[in-house]
Design a protein around this nucleic acid. Structure first.
Length: 788
DNA sequence: TCGCCCTATATAAGG
DNA sequence: TATAGGGCGA
């Protein structure tokens, strides 16, 4: 292999590059651009056009929802190519999701007439990070065929580290450590850079040490996690400036999508690649919308976009404020809502849609079942009027909310599709199959080896695994090599010894055949000979058939790739198995996965305090969390072209407990001019008239939100009181704390809003087990019952 | 070593 | 409520 320090771009394997010849810094005079005005410019509005034509210097495009952000990005790339400012391989274009990358590639291809195979540097942060890291793997103590571990593997590896260090896993769960490490990596912090005081809370201050050990284990496994794909790049760039310089000269244009979602590591990565501003340095263009920053919880820093002018002096800022998607009412409602957030760059979206359209519908319902019933009914009405189901979406805050809708749709035979759910490559059987292939491709992948060691059952249990680990640690061997060693010694029982020997022999055989067999065929042989498929064939359970189908699908998917390595890379970085689903179905997904999409009709259920804004968000991040939730609401509303419908339920079952719910403060923040309120009769008034007033005092004050006040006032027939949206309650008030112990005693007769009268059977903290007269025995939280 | 049962736990999500 | 992981008995 060529020395990557001196000739990193030679490994590209790209044919037909314009600049293959000159490694030295140079900027040849560009050939004159074609005289004729490019056809794509005519399709742009003046601001978009300026964003496309401002090619020199840092540029921030603040693109509000529905203002043609992707069009600007893709047209800009086309324009760079058209004006001969750079060849395709000199443009770095980075996105967050594979979907966005794919769309960008397609649209650029469409604009420049097909040939964009030459854009090797268009992809997600992680894909591009992996690409760079594979070229310089040895600088990060890796081999270029390193494995990219998924979250599942990460946790298992951390468990191993924790148990090796005798850390009590019940007290310090691996998940929590994973969380810490992830957030350090998101902030670009290698173990030696983590501030000492930060890990105090974990395992008696051993957090950083555990982080270091985890990194060591990764290196011995020749593996990285997702965070390393960027973090290792940062380290390499910092330690090898000449190499960074090569990349800076290489990339004449940098384009970044969804800049508001970048975390610190991504920001540093971009800054390093952009370098100081200079004539031969790259030109950076970031596109984003601070109002759509909804990934703070996974490390995104809105600050990055807010700080752009400071970070890149002399930056041009262009606002795209013409919205081509939503009607004025929908846009008015969304704008009014988001105005309650402080610390925005500020945009005034104007609707370019002629029809004023319907107002945003706001509707209170009794519970989730009614919510689903109402939505399904409206969808059927739309369908009767000739609307397509695929133009309808239901956007929920949390995953569990989809269940009620699914049940309703199933019983009414309304076709629907779940977007986001469990992904193909996360299924257990797919992971197992992948683990076999990973060991074939990379025998040092001991995590994969351990995963399939006893799948199917080979009589290799806990005891054998322990000995394998000891041997592997003592002799610095991979688990596979440890197994090879142990299969020839007396250290394990004869049965296990034979099984180990057989497994090692099989892997040797499969590995030997990688060269002369197509990889999909080899995979079939591996799964067959290992007995893995047989295991599922013999399985009598209901899921077994589906799992076999999935395995077939896996083989089919493999056929589309050039090699086993390519396929493994794809799975690690893409996770989803693309399925073209053009059928006419209702779309069901979380608000997070709806970003970037649009629909004629959007239903937004579950606008209740605690669910949306989500309690956890408020507890963990206070006002910042609330503002992020509000941005999420903004994203939800702005998905709608013609119709948006907000719903909230008076009662919701969460974690198996019934909770009385109050309307979200966001409901109250929607400007009255743009909404039409339609409360189902009796939701916040009829029933007994006591559910708001006769609560214990601490509960009432905790729920003193605008939405709650509105519901209460509406009930009293008083005029609605609008609170100044800029005044946000202090964090303490946002936290709903349930009383730790109940004042209720077994034997008491109580009344519950949903279940009626009953007698307390047991008291556990604030949870009561109540034997209801009509509803049977239920567990409820004490604040939802009153003494009868 | 396997399998069952109990209990603790977590509910946002992409690469 | 649903599930996953740990503990314990056969």
């Amino acid at each position: 292999m060529a020395n990557p320090l001196h000739d990193p771009f030679d490994l590209d394997g790209l044919a037909g590059e314009a600049d293959h010849t000159a490694p030295a810094p140079r900027r040849e005079p560009a050939p004159p651009p074609p005289a004729r005005e490019p056809p794509y410019l005519a399709a742009l509005n003046p601001e978009q056009r300026r964003a496309v034509e401002t090619l020199d210097g840092p540029l921030l495009v603040l693109a509000g929802a529905g203002t043609g952000k992707t069009r600007v990005l893709t047209t800009r790339i086309a324009h760079i190519l058209w004006t001969r400012r750079a060849s395709p391989s000199q443009i770095l274009a980075v996105t967050f999701t594979n979907k966005a990358a794919r769309e960008m590639r397609e649209r650029v291809g469409h604009l420049v007439g097909g040939a964009v195979e030459g854009m090797p540097w268009l992809g997600t942060f992680h894909a591009l990070g992996a690409r760079i890291l594979r070229r310089h793997a040895e600088l990060a103590r890796l081999k270029s065929n390193f494995t990219i571990l998924d979250v599942d593997d990460q946790i298992r590896l951390m468990r191993q580290v924790l148990s090796a260090e005798n850390v009590d896993e019940r007290r310090w769960p691996a998940r929590a450590l994973a969380g810490h490490i992830d957030s350090w990596k998101n902030r670009g912090l290698a173990p030696d850079k983590v501030p000492a005081n930060e890990a105090q809370g974990f395992a008696n201050g051993r957090g950083i040490d555990l982080y270091r050990q985890y990194q060591e284990r990764l290196k011995t496994l020749n593996a990285t996690d997702f965070g390393d794909l960027l973090l290792d790049c940062l380290t390499i760039f910092q330690q090898h400036p000449e190499l960074l310089e090569d990349y800076r000269r290489r990339f004449r244009y940098l384009l970044v999508d969804e800049y508001q979602d970048t975390n610190v590591a991504q920001y540093l990565w971009l800054r390093l690649l952009a370098g100081p501003r200079r004539p031969d340095g790259p030109n950076l263009c970031c596109v984003g919308d601070d109002d759509q920053s909804i990934y703070g919880w996974r490390g995104a820093e809105v600050g990055n976009i807010l700080r752009f002018e400071k970070d890149f002096p002399g930056a041009t800022i262009i606002r795209l404020e013409r919205n081509y998607r939503s009607t004025p009412h929908i846009l008015g409602a969304a704008s009014g809502l988001i105005a309650a957030n402080a610390g925005r760059l500020g945009k005034t979206l104007r609707s370019e849609v002629a029809a004023s359209g319907e107002k945003v519908q706001v509707r209170g319902v009794w519970d989730a079942e009614e919510e689903a019933r109402v939505v399904a009914e409206e969808i059927e009405n739309l369908q009767r009027k000739g609307h397509r189901l695929s133009a309808v979406a239901i956007l929920v805050r949390t995953g569990f909310q989809t269940r009620t809708f699914e049940e309703r749709f199933l019983s009414l035979a309304i076709p629907y599709r779940m977007i986001g759910g469990t992904r193909f490559y996360e299924r257990a059987e797919i992971r197992d199959a992948m683990a076999y292939l990973r060991v074939v491709a990379q025998p040092e992948d001991s995590l994969a080896f351990e995963r399939i060691l006893n799948k199917p059952k080979r009589g290799l249990g806990e005891a054998t695994v322990q000995i394998l680990h000891q041997t592997s640690r003592a002799q610095s061997l991979s688990l596979l090599e440890a197994a090879r060693l142990l299969s020839g010694t007396e250290e394990v029982r004869p049965r296990a010894r034979a099984a180990l020997g057989e497994l090692v022999r099989q892997f040797d055989g499969w590995r030997a055949r990688t060269r002369d067999l197509p990889h999909a065929e080899l995979a079939e042989i591996v799964l067959e000979e290992s007995g893995y498929t047989e295991m599922w064939r013999l399985d009598r359970s209901a899921e077994a058939a589906g799992k076999l189908d999935n395995l077939k699908e896996l083989i089919r998917a493999m056929e589309e790739f050039g090699s086993l390595t390519d396929f493994l890379e794809h799975v690690a970085l893409v996770m989803e198995n693309e399925q073209a689903d053009s059928d006419d179905k209702v779309n069901l997904m979380t608000l997070h996965s709806a970003k970037g999409l649009e629909f004629d009709t959007v239903f937004l259920p579950g606008w209740e305090e605690g669910l949306f804004p989500h309690q956890r968000s408020l507890d963990e991040s206070g006002i910042a969390g609330l503002e992020e939730e509000r941005r999420l609401a903004y994203v939800g509303l702005t998905r709608a072209r013609a119709r948006a419908s907000v719903l909230y339920a008076a009662n919701r079952r969460m974690h198996g407990l019934w909770q009385a719910a109050v309307p979200s403060r966001f409901v109250d923040e929607l400007p009255a001019d743009h909404v039409e309120i339609e409360n189902a009769p009796g939701i916040y008034g009829g029933m007994g008239g006591s559910q708001f007033e006769e609560r214990p005092a601490p509960f009432t004050s905790a729920y003193d939100t605008p939405g709650w006040r509105r519901a209460r006032d509406a009930r009293r027939g008083e005029p609605q009181r609008r609170t100044d949206p800029r005044i946000i309650e202090g964090q303490a008030e946002l936290v709903v704390t349930s009383e730790p112990t109940s004042t209720h005693r077994p034997g008491e007769r109580v009344f519950h809003l949903k279940f009626g009268y009953g007698r307390i059977v047991a008291v556990d903290g604030n949870k009561l087990t109540v034997d209801f007269e009509k509803a049977g025995t239920k567990k409820v939280v004490d604040s939802f019952v009153e003494r009868a």
